[in-house]
Amino acid sequence: MWTYEKKLQYPVKVSECNPKLAKYLIEQYGGADGELAAALRYLNQRYTIPDKVVGLLTDIGTEEFAHLEMIAAMVYKLTKDATPDQIKEAGLEGHYTNHGVSLFYHNTAGKPFEVQHIQSKGDPIADLYEDIAAEEKARATYQWIIDLSDDPDLNDSLAFLREREIVHSQRFREAVELLKDERDRQKIF
């Protein structure tokens, strides 16, 4: 089970009304390397990973939902008061036609989230290598969004999220090392 804390993992502040940034950010909401994909990937893989690293996948998978919540807060702030004209200007009219200003799990090109974005191979090394790649891809996505955004407050939150991708990648790399470790192996000479 989970407990919920009614606050964000890191404060989300947006300095200017720029709905276009929401269009970029939605990639991390419902995109292939986004936070939803990450959370679902880890929380599903954890059942068939060796005991030593189950807790790691649970912890990181849980944190990804906290990141998803931050992205949702950003998108919501950027779009909730946008006029239809601003929506059009931001290139969000397709989203608006279908969803109004509500959020939806799709990527920046409007492609809906699909479960094929994640994998579960049942081979611990294959799964952890996928997880490492996913963290690096999410890190890169944050870099590209920071490149596109000139909102300093938003970029501050994005820098935090990018740093978390680095820490998660490091922990997954360590998990691979733990599983490679030969200390427990019975040696016969």
Binding site: Y10, I146, N155, F160, R162, I166, V167
Partner: peptide
Amino acid sequence: LKKGTLWPALFDSYKG
């Protein structure tokens, strides 16, 4: 909490 990591050795800033 501000940096996103407990460890200076893992901190990385991205300038854009």
